[in-house]
Design a protein around this nucleic acid. Structure first.
Length: 599
RNA sequence: GGUCCCGUAGCUCAACUGGAUAGAGCAGCGGACUUCUAAUCCGCAGGUUGCAGGUUCGAGUCCUGCCGGGAUCGCCA
């Protein structure tokens, strides 16, 4: 009965509990109303306190309401029935009605075999049932190099996409290029200044609203070389088009190059320009169509907004404008769609963009944004709710700031002076693995400290190293074992026949229990859209392994390799193989390498 | 002033979406190296989960109000 499709002990026990309840209901022991299984809030989980057995369930507590009986009473009936089940050694009632289950060691031991058979598929699930999910991440403007904050969103989004694909979603990784609008115009003007500079003109300090960074100089120089003074004579419109056609692809390529160094590649790159340059028969662009769409639903009107309280902008001008009724969907105020100069607001084009996602068949949307966009969440959710009639779900994941330090000293950064640390510089210095792992050692909505010294340290302090070292150490043992026994005797075939019942040391069983928790950890991380849980899990798993390894130092009979006991060694090598599989799978979801050697 | 996020051991953070006596690491103290790579491990100590109420069998988790920190607040993206 154990280890069916999901290879998940906890899922199997849950099924066992539900079927036991059904049997008791059929026998008339419980009066079970139709549709009350599984009960809401049912938990089948490892208890915090090991004294409470291997698995604890609140089944009796959550069944109390539907059954109309006291939790404790239900537990007293359910527990003995469960104790009859295969694999369950004991079932005890505790507290208000918890049932603590202790499993037969054979159940835990068989987990090792299940992992070996499943290999890299261990932990996979079909939660998504092939449903399409759109994960939009990075989406930085092509106005300059990526910085560290972008890196966090990039890694987060990518790991989340990996995770969702792993549990059975049809994932599309998407990048939204803001390649239109005022910011891009300012960028193009900045490049134009660099171009004039390259022609020998003296350009003073850059105006405040332009981009002063040195990285635009080569673009200006290229244009000067290619066009000479011709751009100076062109109309502004023509000139900006020339600069745009050259500069945007260059800047975009630079961003993609940085991302690819982190192992990140998007399936779809969506250009904002498309939304305002493609027109339908009525001459409407995509944003116009979107507004018309909302208008049909009675969600567009002309009106005035009250100025924000407490912080009235100096240049506030009360005027009537085109508004989206986002308050109908939980937003705080209705939002403008057209600026005073007649162009669309960023929000308007963003609605059109999300409408495109919906029209492409996505019902689950995930946007990964930076901390400074927090105030934007409600209106975007409102827009998605409006456009989809509530059928689609948008989850916005806000990534908090990254605080860069070096040996505890804050790294000075000033966007104004152009001295911000680029993502490329960080990759150059610490490498892909460190960035990817560390970015996931904190919940996305909590600020993250990133220390250049610490993240490359080879110590317990540094979780990247700690986990990778565990993997390398496992493989070191595997290499040593191969030298002692001849290679064929430790083949996967030999491991498949290992007598796993020999894995009876409590440290070994504890290690196996960690491995057994992998599928449920994956499932919960996927449901919560929280890939950082994988990183925490891996640290704990590594800790369990390092602990067991060290027990062998003082107690030689606990070493994984026992030269005098081939059968025991084979069983332990099987355990290590299972361990290395889980470590490698977890790391691959994070996009971090699993090295076999770290000398 | 509005909105959103955060507040958990001296420090940095977990806590599997409401479960039992709130867990790790660092720092501190005390231990384990002729090793399966000690690049590691073991033990001790450390708490009114910011404060006050509420919801229920049960709250770090949900609701209300305060306190403190951060982000953001039409015509930026």
């Amino acid at each position: 009965m154990f280890f069916g499709a999901q290879m998940d002990v906890f899922a199997d026990i849950e099924k066992q509990i539900l079927s036991t309840v059904r049997v008791l209901a059929r026998r008339g022991v419980f009066a079970l109303p139709a549709g009350s299984l599984p009960p809401r809030g049912l938990a089948v989980e490892p208890p915090r306190d090991p004294a409470h057995g291997d698995i604890a369930t609140n089944a009796a507590l959550v069944l109390a309401r539907p059954l109309g009986r006291k939790p404790r009473e239900i537990a007293e009936v359910l527990a003995p029935a469960l104790a009859e089940s295969d694999g369950i050694a004991r079932a005890e009632v505790a507290g208000p009605g918890f049932i603590n289950l202790t499993l037969e060691p054979a159940v835990w031991q068989s987990v090792v075999g299940a992992i070996l058979r499943a290999g890299g598929r261990y932990g996979r699930a079909n939660l998504g049932r092939g449903e399409k999910v759109n994960v939009e991440y990075v989406s930085a403007n092509p106005t300059g190099p990526l910085h560290v904050g972008h890196g966090r969103g990039a890694v987060f989004g990518d790991a989340l996409a990996n995770l969702l694909a792993f549990v059975g979603y049809d994932v599309t990784r998407e990048y939204y290029w803001n390649d239109a609008g005022a910011q891009i115009d300012k960028l193009l003007e900045s490049i134009f200044l660099r171009y004039r500079e390259a022609l020998g003109e003296r350009i003073g300090p850059f105006p405040d609203d332009l981009y002063p960074g040195d990285y635009l100089k080569p673009l200006g120089a290229y244009l000067a070389k290619k066009y000479g003074k011709r751009l100076l004579r062109q109309s502004e419109e023509k000139r900006l088009a020339t600069i745009r056609d050259y500069a945007l692809p260059v800047l975009k390529r630079a961003i993609m190059r940085t991302l690819s160094r982190l192992g990140i590649k998007h399936d779809v790159k969506f250009n904002e320009r498309r939304l305002i340059t493609t027109r339908d028969k009525k001459g409407r662009d995509k944003v116009g169509q979107t507004i018309a769409d909302l208008e049909r639903r009675g969600l567009i009107y002309r009106g005035r907004l009250a100025p924000p309280k407490g912080k009235r902008p100096d240049d506030w001008e009360d005027r009537e404008q085109l508004l989206f009724r986002s308050t109908q969907f939980g937003d705080d105020v209705d939002r403008p769609l057209v600026k005073s100069d007649g162009s669309y607001t960023y929000f308007a084009t963003d609605i059109a963009y999300h409408r495109s996602k919906l029209r492409r068949g996505f019902r689950q949307l995930i946007d990964v944004w930076g901390a400074d966009h927090g105030g934007y969440v409600k209106r975007m959710k409102a827009a998605v709710a409006a456009l989809s009639n509530g059928a689609a779900e948008l989850d916005v994941k806000i990534c908090q700031l990254v605080n860069l330090t070096r040996g505890g000293v804050p790294e000075k950064m000033s966007k104004r002076a152009g001295t911000f640390v680029t993502l490329d510089e960080v990759i150059d210095e610490v490498g892909r693995d460190a960035i990817r792992f560390i970015m996931l050692t904190r919940k996305n909505d909590a600020p993250l400290d990133f220390d250049f010294v610490k993240v490359v340290e080879k110590s317990r302090d540094n979780p990247v190293f700690y986990v990778q070292y565990a993997h390398a150490r496992v493989h070191s043992v595997l290499r040593n074992a191969k030298e002692l026994f001849d290679e064929r005797e430790l083949s996967m075939g030999a491991l498949a026949k290992a007598d796993l019942a020999l894995l009876e040391d409590e440290g070994e069983i504890a290690l196996i229990k960690h491995l057994a928790a992998f599928p449920r950890m994956i499932a919960s991380a996927a449901r919560a859209h929280e890939p950082h849980r994988i990183a925490f899990y891996l640290s704990e798993l590594a800790s369990a392994f390092h602990g067991q390894w060290n027990r062998g130092v003082s107690s030689p009979h606990l070493r994984f390799i026992r030269e005098d006991n081939y059968r025991l060694t084979v069983a332990r090598i099987a355990l290590l193989r299972a361990l290395s599989t889980v470590l490698a799978t977890g790391l691959s979801l994070l996009g971090v390498a699993a090295p076999r050697e770290m000398r």
